[in-house]
């Protein structure tokens, strides 16, 4: 027993020396800025990266104009919840002036750490799908939500398909284990039902299942379009390219309406009316500026009676891929082309 205590002491010493060594090499001076902001991003994903980028760019601009300097500490948890907690704790230990977070799990971890620390460090979140249900609203938090108005999306679908009145079928393709796309699906189904359109859910838990889904959808003549949500699994470039290829080379190509503008540009989807995440990030930066420089309490900032920005029409981009639509033998109505932010 005595020997093991001695052993334990030696081991502790070695570990202490090793970590001290890392600490010494990692020493940096971060105190020359007016504001230091910790960015806790859950994973590398276009929407999340754009939100962070939009936030960083806009806040730097605002701070420059006001004559302040700002420093960003960027950390990405790589989809690991334990790392998200470590990052939040480290930011608090470094006494950052504010924490920015994107991705539900990282936002929750950041808020939990900040709340436990007394709620003195403000937290701003960006592009959250449901801030209320995810327990994100506290006196020290504010942010933006990427929830979009589904009624407008349904009207757009109807115009795209070219059936002015009466019912038709739309397939909603999504990852059934992602919270926001499930919620988005519910809203889409309700909004479509009000307009007489039937939306059926086609959930997958693996990218590989998309093949059977697309084949089944194309094989059923009732379907006139495919709608894909703000999906982290199907939204990756590789997965979406696969969806586009399967659809274009299938027995009956259908117009795909995506929630990501980039998929239209890449030629995988015909149309998208989606939040511009750079814009949402920039809006989050404006909230952050009001808190840091304006001295406002985050929880008191209310827009339209809500404690967070809900993605407004100004933050939505309508992107159309005319070439792809024409290769399917479809014509896009001129009114839509006029209203589009960009046409390929």
């Amino acid at each position: 027993m005595k020997k093991s205590i001695k052993h334990f002491a030696v081991v502790t010493m070695v570990v202490a020396v090793a970590t001290m060594g890392m600490f010494m090499t990692g020493c940096r001076n971060r105190n020359n800025y007016d504001f230091t902001i910790g960015l806790n991003q859950f994973l590398v994903f276009p929407a999340a990266c754009d939100s962070t980028e939009g936030f960083r760019t806009r806040l730097t601009e605002l701070m420059d104009d006001a004559g302040y300097s700002v420093n960003f500490l960027y950390q990405n948890a790589n989809g690991d919840a334990a790392t998200a907690t470590t990052i939040a704790n480290n930011f608090l230990a470094q006494r950052v002036d504010m924490m920015f977070s994107v991705g539900t799990t990282a936002v929750n971890a950041t808020i939990a750490a900040a709340a436990g620390a007394g709620g003195t460090t403000p937290v701003v979140f960006s592009s959250a799908s449901n801030p209320t249900a995810s327990q994100m609203l506290h006196p020290f938090t504010t942010g933006t939500s990427d929830v979009v108005d589904m009624t407008a999306q349904v009207a757009l679908l109807r115009e795209l398909v070219g059936i002015p009145t009466g019912g038709f079928y739309v397939a909603y393709l999504y990852s059934s284990d992602e919270d926001n796309v499930r919620a988005q699906g519910d809203m889409l189904v309700d909004a479509a039902a009000a307009d007489g359109i039937t939306v059926t859910r086609h959930g997958v838990t693996d990218v590989g299942q998309v093949t059977t889904r697309i084949t089944a959808i194309q094989g059923n003549p009732r379907y006139r379009a495919i709608f894909t949500g703000q999906d982290n699994r199907l939204g990756t470039d590789a997965a979406f390219q696969m969806i586009g290829d399967l659809n274009a080379n299938g027995s009956r190509p259908l117009p795909i309406m995506s929630s990501f503008a980039a998929k239209v540009a890449a030629g995988a989807a015909v149309l998208s009316m989606a939040p511009c995440y750079l814009h949402l990030g920039a809006m989050t930066a404006e909230l952050a500026f009001r808190v840091l420089v304006g001295g406002e309490t985050p929880g008191d900032i209310r827009i339209n009676g809500m404690r967070y920005y809900r993605s407004p029409a100004t933050a939505l981009d309508l992107i159309i891929n005319r070439t792809l639509a024409e290769s399917f033998g479809m014509t896009i109505p001129q009114r839509m082309l006029d209203a589009a932010t960009e046409v390929y």
């Binding site: 970590t19 990692g26 470590t86």
Partner: peptide, 19 residues
């Protein structure tokens, strides 16, 4: 967890490399 945490805070390695 100490090693992971110290590596992150020291900025020696990007969090991309934690795994």
């Amino acid at each position: 967890f100490s090693i992971i945490s110290v590596v992150i805070i020291s900025g020696l390695m990007s969090t991309d490399a934690t795994r």
